[in-house]
């Protein structure tokens, strides 16, 4: 439906300036640039102060009015029962139209960036900006979002858009990065749902999250169809919850992904226990079985205890016990 009554002065030379119009809410849609933000504070603010900034308007591909900045304000106005919204329509230059274009996409991104986009909104913004513009403008639009074209981060944003739903929710909450979501894009819906459930239950740190999903992805690749879903739904992972959930999940996933290293670590723990080290004497070994160093720590209270611990440490270093810790994998 063309916006026929739309009073546009096409003779303007000042580009982005336009007129403020009162547009019925029923005829407005918003560009999908917002996700996972509660409206309550905004509703309260508009209720008390009124709308301080008008919405930005353009026309979508079918000629219908589209709010390109102010989607949340539009929703808040609707919740408050407003029937019309003040909208600012940029005034096109000569030969231009109000249809979404590279210029309007840039305008929308710039205005939306002012509120700080969460990870989900970054994905949405980049996805919408590309659809609303022509390819030659994409490097500029990517630059507005802080990315160089072709970078891993930008590719991750694109791939992340292939999976939405709970993935976008978790990204909006800061519990999933676009890189994680991009990796999940190659998974089956069942695998994805089970993995996201694990993330939601265990609340891993950013580093753990990245590692877990990579490890699970490795298992998926090596195990073939159905293997990962079986693991995620199996007893080692499905039942994990509670205060130690993150630690338990990490140990379980590590054990599945690195059975050789996990077994070595277990055998080393047993060997260390067999040494029956006295209290105050602690041996620390590289968890990756890679380093050449062994750290022996002494915690002592007086000269006598220091002497005893040092004597024990010397005996250890001169005997075979430490070498055995390194070579137990044979």
């Amino acid at each position: 439906m063309p916006l026929s009554p739309y009073p546009v002065d096409t003779g303007g030379q000042d580009g982005w300036q336009g007129q403020i119009l009162e547009i019925p809410l029923a005829g407005l849609a918003a560009a999908p640039l917002s996700h996972g933000r509660p409206l309550e504070d905004l509703v309260k603010s508009i209720g008390e102060l009124g709308l301080l900034r008008p919405l930005w308007l353009a026309l979508d591909g079918d000629g219908r009015p589209l709010v390109i900045s102010g989607g949340r304000r539009l929703a808040a106005l609707a919740r408050l029962g407003f029937r019309k919204a003040p909208c600012l329509a940029p005034r096109p230059g000569p030969g231009q139209t109000l249809a979404c274009s590279s210029f309007l996409a840039a305008l929308a991104l710039t205005d939306n960036l002012g509120r700080g986009l969460n990870q989900a909104e970054l994905c949405l913004a980049w996805d919408w900006a590309r659809k609303a513009s022509e390819p030659p403008a994409w490097p500029t639009l990517a630059g507005l979002l802080g990315f160089r074209p072709g970078t891993t981060r930008l590719v991750a944003l694109e791939k992340a858009m292939e999976v939405q739903g709970q993935t976008l929710d978790l990204m909006a909450q800061g519990r999933l990065d676009p890189e994680n979501a991009a990796l999940l894009a190659a998974w089956t819906p069942e695998e994805r749902a089970l993995a996201l459930d694990l993330v939601a239950r265990t609340g891993p740190s950013r580093q753990n999250r990245r590692q877990w999903l990579e490890w699970l992805d490795d298992l998926r690749r090596s195990g073939g169809p159905g293997f990962l879903a079986g693991l995620l739904a199996g007893p080692a992972l499905a039942a994990i919850s509670g205060p130690r959930a993150e630690k338990s999940a990490r140990e379980a996933i590590h054990g599945l992904r690195f059975p050789f290293l996990s077994d070595l670590a277990r055998r080393r723990r047993e060997a260390l226990r067999d040494l029956a080290l006295p209290e105050g004497l602690k041996i620390e070994l590289d968890p990756d079985f890679e380093d050449v160093t062994t750290t022996i720590g002494l915690t002592f209270s007086d000269k006598d205890s220091l002497g005893r611990l040092a004597q024990k440490a010397l005996e250890l270093s001169e005997g075979q016990a430490l070498d055995a810790l390194w070579l137990l994998e044979d």
């Binding site: 690749r221 059975p259 290293l261 990756d288």
Partner: peptide
């Protein structure tokens, strides 16, 4: 990720640790 994307291979599913040169390598015993 880059190598996987350009040339699918099963090489990366083995167990690796981070070496002193910043590269992933098989665990020393292996």
């Amino acid at each position: 990720a880059i190598m996987r994307a350009t040339r699918p291979s099963g090489l990366f599913e083995a167990e690796f640790v981070l070496g002193g040169d910043g590269k992933m390598r098989y665990p020393r015993p292996r």
